[in-house]
Design a protein around this nucleic acid. Sequence first.
RNA 1: GGUGAGGUGGCUGAGUGGUCGAAAGCAGCGCUUUGCUAAAGCGCCGUACUCCAAAAGGGUACCGAGGGUUCGAAUCCCUCCCUCACCGCCA
Length: 423
Amino acid sequence: MLDIRLIREQPDFVKSRIATRGGDDAAKIDEVLRVDATRRKAETALQQLNGDRKRLSKEIGGKRARGEASDELETRVREVGDQISLLNEQTSAADEEQKRLLLQIPNLPHANAPVGKDASENPVVRSWGEKPALSGTVLDHLALGTQLKLFDLERAAKLSGSGFICFTGAGARLERALINFMLDLHTREHGYLEISPPFLVRRECMIGTTQLPKFEEDMYGLENGELFLAPTAEVPVTNFHREEILGPAELPKKFVAYTPCFRREAGSAGRETRGIIRVHQFDKVELVKITAPENSYAEHESLTANAERVLQLLGLHYRVIELCTGDLGFGGAKTYDIEVWSPGQNAYLEVSSCTNFEEFQARRMNLRFKDADGKNRFCHTLNGSGLALPRLFAALIETYQQPDGSVRIPEKLQPHFGAAEIR
RNA sequence: GGUGAGGUGGCUGAGUGGUCGAAAGCAGCGCUUUGCUAAAGCGCCGUACUCCAAAAGGGUACCGAGGGUUCGAAUCCCUCCCUCACCGCCA
């Protein structure tokens, strides 16, 4: 959520910055400004009347205490009261309308974000390792997984429909090993606090981290409309401190959480739907930071580096791209995507999206900290996968496949997996 | 799921219709006293919105949330949320 004051004071700046995203949000800015003016006018009048009532009511109290008549005053206050309830309705209506509009205006991209219209214009920031030189027939993860009985998609469909995975045997163990490997890395070597949060979250939390109100159709909600299946651990973990004022020494907060993630992926049928690349439920280890504004960009770099470390230790080739303004998510100010190389797809697969939201989410969830001067200010929030499992799983077995159809387990993962190969 | 108790400022805690944004204590900040520490005394010490070009300074709202009664609500009524205790059910 943007600061209404910023919009009010620098509407052209806000419009031009948001325009780089490519949407047509200028109209929303004008609308919110119009509502804001109405709201403030009504509010000022309301405050005036409230003051009148307060004063007159006290007078009545005084008169009564002295045994004097107060009928005339009471009539007057009653009239003021009627005006107040009228204005009250106008004010709260304008207030709600303003809030509703503000929730739909995206964040301003960072000043240095590369300007571009869509994913095709995302610059590559760096890459690590090289594409593996595989000999013989290169199998994709679907063929490998089926052959080695690592997962069973047909039976998963029998249980839950298409777009679900059921890991089996060594596949289930590999999934679990990867989760533990990543959690251990981030907690022991990168200093994150492990959180195991609820998977069902309230509507307010979904609003706080910007999944709602705009993307409700992509979310799984429960019948009562109140609880949602979290689409990422970002939601419960970032909201962990919602409505709080953190002490000056508490920042930065660094959390890591493993959770399943639930997504409808509405409208994505036919796109990347083969295999386990895009599914309705998947496991993910998520990194979340809550920082002071001054440090958020440094923390953004280190968070991205922490996520990259997973791929480095597993020896998987990847590249890091920065999202251009046209491809940036709704709440993000700056985002790096980490893409792992998939020999089977002959393509890079997104396994992490590391984003600095600045105070956009913090404003929505009223998450603040007390700075050195004792002033309450909004925190900055960041998150990134560290990493998303199915695609990592796919890239790993594809990269480490052997000519005889077996899969080698990278050395660093062997202690967690308990074996050196799958065959 | 049932019954009961309760939700007040950073914390503890008073306040059952008017002068209460809210006593008191603790913590915090400033000053005085003091050889240092300690102690004592005095003062300050919530948030949001809004008015004013800005500052200074006003104003309004907020005592879990939302409605209601009333000239006037922290205080009375209703609904909801949450916490605690006990009972029931259950992995």
